[in-house]
Write a protein that binds this DNA or RNA. Structure first.
Length: 426
RNA sequence: GUGGCCAUCGUUCAAUGGUUAGGACCGCGGUUUGUGGAGCCGCAGAUGAGGGUUCAAUUCCCUCUGGCCACCCCA
């Protein structure tokens, strides 16, 4: 064994896991592209201040989990590995003047993110998210589109029973009044709360709503509900989104106590949850509207909405349900030869087959023909092309176990290509 | 960041305070000279790292590293 192992929370993906992740990412890209979302590839690091400003300096993601890079040489600013994609996408939107494009601007990415967190199943320090953002439109129509897109993606990959938990977290206009109402509600039990919850009570009382502390949870059950405190425009927006989703065939569950962890959300907020799953594996993704974020990072006021879905968790959920798709390799040809030492000729012939459009590989060792054929079968090849001592070729169908008489190379290659082509349909 | 459980070949399981840590699967090779999946035979391959206790540690203790669970957070 090597003296090195992969660092904590950072893992290798290979074999079936790698194929499954690539497949889930592929489905994400095509879902996004089909809906008119353009691909955006962001740098892996941004100015730390972007995240600090956007996500909020007191959030765990920034306060504890940000990978800050050591400054070097002529770096004018401090950099950090991106812990999420939204801030970078909005930064790019502003930087490149995308407000001069037709609005909303629809952007999508599938990308690696980094958070210094304590690893667990379904929670890694490097993870992959499918992220979609629609920037520049304030009305509820785009909310419906974005929520539906995520649900449709999850249904497409085989997680049709995912629940959409939907809430509105209001706006800077109506949230303060609600926060005050919450503080009043929790005040009687304040001295029985833990230190963490007491801090929340003072600074961000909405977080108390999903506290696990028994006292807080019991009190939260009777807490005032945000939807009753929304201002008229927020209430109208929320109602329109809810009705629109129902009309679009997306079943959503009202989740009045749903509070998302990133501070920049306004109005529509939702999560994609797997019913029956405990812990973090059940949360496949979530999203929200963030109408104030553009201003927060120094741009013109720009409404926007987006979601992030964890590819790692999608794969995990499929794995646990035994629903990982098989990703069959294309029908391949395997080049063998009677002469154990004819590897160079085998490699050359395989190359010729590939040039002709087939999937082909050669046996590169110096082993007897029997071993070569055995390797071909384990390799999953559909047929073997055997180089005869006289230079002629034989085509052996490894599935049927039949073999034609040796013939001139051009004819046998043509037959092999035909066989491989048909093999894709088997 | 808090609490807890865990760590033996690539994988999955054994065993032990004292000779060469064992099996299965996988891999590689052989099975009498040019044809695959079975069988048989063989080969390779591990006690995560570092300390300590002991005549002797893979086994007991500590630290580190990594995994997992709950909390936290979130995807």
């Amino acid at each position: 064994m090597s003296a090195f192992q992969s660092p904590r929370g950072l893992r290798d993906l290979y074999g079936e896991a790698a194929a499954a992740h690539a497949w889930a990412a592929e489905r994400a890209w095509s879902a996004a592209l089909a809906a008119g979302y353009g691909r955006i590839d962001l740098p892996i690091a941004e100015e730390s201040a972007l995240f600090e400003r956007a996500i909020g300096g007191t959030s765990d993601v920034v306060a504890k989990e940000l990978y800050r890079l050591e400054p070097r040489g002529d770096d004018a600013v401090r950099l950090a590995l991106r812990p999420e994609a939204t801030a970078g996408i909005l930064r790019a939107y502003l930087q490149h003047g995308m407000r001069s494009q037709p609005q909303p601007v629809r952007l999508a990415t599938v990308t690696q993110l980094f958070r210094y967190d304590r690893p667990q199943k379904g929670r890694y320090r490097q993870f992959t998210q499918f992220d979609i953002e629609a920037i520049g439109e304030a009305g509820p129509g785009i909310d419906i589109e974005v929520v539906e897109l995520g649900a449709a993606y999850l249904r497409d990959v085989g997680l049709a029973d995912v629940e959409v938990h939907l809430n509105s977290v209001g706006c800077p206009g109506c949230r303060p009044a609600y926060a005050a109402a919450l503080q009043a509600h929790f005040a009687p039990v304040a001295d029985r709360l833990g230190p963490v919850d007491r801090t929340r009570l003072a600074e961000n009382p909405m977080r108390l709503l999903d506290s696990k502390d028994p006292t807080a949870a019991e009190r939260a059950a009777s807490a005032p509900i945000l939807s009753a405190h929304l201002c008229a425009p927020c209430a109208a927006h929320a109602a329109a989104v809810e009705a629109g989703l129902a009309a679009a065939g997306v079943r959503s569950v009202a989740a009045p106590r749903l509070v998302r962890g990133l501070d920049y959300y306004t109005r529509t907020a939702w999560e994609y949850l797997l019913p029956g799953e405990q812990g973090q594996q059940g949360a496949l993704g979530g999203g929200g509207r963030y109408d104030g974020l553009a201003e927060l990072i120094g741009g013109a006021a720009t409404p926007a909405i987006g979601f992030a879905i964890g590819i790692d968790r999608v794969v995990l959920a499929l794995e646990e349900r035994g629903k990982l798709p098989s990703t069959p390799a294309p029908a391949a040809l395997y080049v063998a030869s009677i002469d154990p030492d004819a590897a160079p000729a085998r490699v050359a012939l395989a190359s010729r087959l590939r040039t002709a459009g087939a999937s082909a590989r050669a046996d590169t060792g110096s082993r007897k023909i029997g071993k070569q054929l055995e390797a071909a079968v384990r390799d999953g090849a559909i047929a073997a092309i055997i180089i005869e001592p006289d230079g002629q070729l034989s085509l052996r169908d490894l599935v049927a176990g039949t073999q034609a008489d040796p013939g001139p190379s051009a004819a046998v290659i043509a037959a092999a290509l035909e066989l491989a082509k048909g093999g894709d349909d088997r």
